[in-house]
């Protein structure tokens, strides 16, 4: 089985969010970059587990990013991918990114494409569905469990207020979230091995983006907390009822 795992780079979860150039660009100054947690903890680790069960499995990683994503992709390789492909383009248009991933997927002939649930910076939750459509494949979104037997995948996914189990034959696109696997820390052997694993860089195919970021805004600052005495819970409820009109 050949699996393509989509890897994106995001600011560390504690990064200070600020913008430059008249609020049109994210201020990357001093920002620590990490593998998007959904990609790392859930989709990549689940792919590695599948390879551990069936050693003939091949895992390729793909990222659509400029060269500054190389440390991230090396870290992903250290966790366990076999080789990585970086499509050399810097874009925040989901369709553009999905088109590049779909192109890589077509060339490689994968049985399975894994994405994360969403990127924690642009929060699109869109790439998986777009890739599936571009490849004309079924898509199971927000999966919490993934099992494979022969050619058939059995996937548990979230539904409003519960979960359902769906079956589909490969090839298939799946977006992964919590439940799929547990976070792993790369070990020394993995880190050393990752240095020599292939990281292929290829140029993007020509695609017209469908959207563009016009600018960013920060939410208005909170007015400050109104503290109510612990002996006076009734007063809190009165405020929530009469002032905030939230109860």
């Amino acid at each position: 089985m050949k699996i393509l795992v989509c890897i994106s780079k995001t600011p560390d979860t504690t990064a200070k969010i600020a913008f430059t150039d008249n609020n049109t660009k994210f201020d990357a100054n001093g920002v620590q970059w990490i593998i998007n947690p959904y990609d790392e903890w859930y989709s990549l680790v689940r792919a590695i587990e599948l390879k551990e069960t069936d050693p003939s499995t091949v895992i390729h990683l793909v990222t659509v990013a400029a060269a500054d994503a190389d440390p991230i992709i090396r870290k992903a390789l250290a966790l366990g991918g076999d080789e990585a492909i970086r499509v050399n383009a810097d874009s925040h248009d989901s369709f553009y990114i999905a088109s590049q991933i779909a192109e890589v997927a077509k060339q490689g002939g994968y049985d399975l494409v894994f994405t994360g649930k969403e990127t924690i910076d642009y929060n699109g939750s869109s790439i998986g569905g777009m890739v599936a459509e571009l490849l004309d494949l079924p898509y199971i979104s927000l999966a919490t469990k993934f099992e494979i037997s022969a050619n058939k995948a059995t996937v548990t996914r979230e539904i409003e207020g519960g979960e359902e189990v769906a079956e589909a034959n490969l090839p298939l696109v799946v977006s992964c979230q919590k439940g799929m696997a547990e976070q792993r820390i790369p070990n020394m052997k993995g880190i050393m091995g990752a240095r020599t694993k292939p990281l292929k860089v290829q140029e993007p195919v020509a695609v017209d983006p469908l959207t563009a970021v016009a600018g960013f805004e920060l939410p208005p600052a909170k007015a400050g907390v109104k503290l109510v005495d612990a002996e006076n819970v009734d007063e809190l409820v009165r405020l929530l009822h009469e002032e905030a009109k939230a109860i």
Binding site: G124, S126, G129, M130, E133, Y139, L142, I159, L210
Partner: peptide, 24 residues
């Protein structure tokens, strides 16, 4: 709606119709 069904369908439709998507 940007709920589970919206997240499953809207991106596909965006790619199919080449229609720009704003999610969320």
């Amino acid at each position: 709606s940007n709920n589970l069904n919206g997240k499953a369908i809207a991106p596909r439709l965006s790619a199919r119709l080449k229609a720009g998507l704003v999610s969320g």
